[in-house]
């Protein structure tokens, strides 16, 4: 399923950002890590934007771009794919 594959990609890129944030919390002066963090955020934002254009908003505020309240139609993440 295409949506699931693309969501997994967004999840993976988001994970890099989250993990790097914890690393930088305790290594705030690591410049190499900071540069990697910037790239990670950029990659994540790009993938998220693409996903949202195709499959609808991941955050409520992104429903602003839709004509109706699309937030209500987005699948609930805990239901999984069966």
């Amino acid at each position: 399923m295409e949506r699931m594959k693309m969501l997994e990609w967004v999840q993976a890129l988001c994970f890099v950002v989250v993990d790097m944030e914890l690393y930088l919390d305790t290594h705030p002066c690591d410049e190499e890590a900071l540069a990697f963090y910037r790239d990670s955020v950029e990659n994540y934002e790009k993938a998220k934007r693409k996903f949202e254009e195709m499959y609808g908003p991941l955050t409520a505020v992104k429903s602003m771009d839709c004509e109706r309240w699309a937030w209500a139609d987005v699948p609930l993440p805990w239901e999984g794919v069966r």
Partner: peptide, 11 residues
Amino acid sequence: TYERKLQYPVN
């Protein structure tokens, strides 16, 4: 802010 996705897939 809530994001409507899990941190890691559960299917």
